[in-house]
Amino acid sequence: MKENNLSNRQLLVLVIARVLMGWYCLYEGMVKVMNPNWSSFAYLNDSQGWFAGIFKAMASNPGLVSVVDFLNEWGLVAIGLGLILGLLTRVATISGVVLISLYCLSHPSLIEANYMLPSSETAMWVGKNLIFVFLLLILLLFPTGHIIGLDRLLFKKKN
């Protein structure tokens, strides 16, 4: 089986990075799941920038808010598990890129933006979430789940 063109060191660093990012997503998801009062309502309503109108409209629809809540809570948990275990790694990584890009769109790191809720750290236009998206894209381009991860067993037949 051809594993990859990665050296052992490259592989090691990529796998550790994947696990750490998974850890972060899993934690973010778990604290939301465990807090019965958590809702995306305030975050959506606190949106600023070009797409603020769309997110605020979502916030004004209670049915939609509960869908967004569910997708956030369990989405983050699933992405986290996927990255840590290397399970359906590609799906987990792409989902992570989409979800966290939405955070970036709703809370863009505009210099003049003044968010009510404590949000991710930003260095002017570059915020933590934006960096996170690109780290996930690196994982997408240099996949490791099929080498170190459950994908290795899951996709064994195709190899």
């Binding site: 840590i84 275990l85 991860g149």
Partner: peptide, 23 residues
């Protein structure tokens, strides 16, 4: 033969599982 999961595959496949325990 190649479809069979060997010990090496299992080790590499489950390598990151202990992380969940720590979590």
């Amino acid at each position: 033969q190649s479809n069979k999961i060997n010990r090496r595959d299992a080790l590499k496949g489950f390598a990151t599982l202990p992380v969940l325990g720590a979590f």
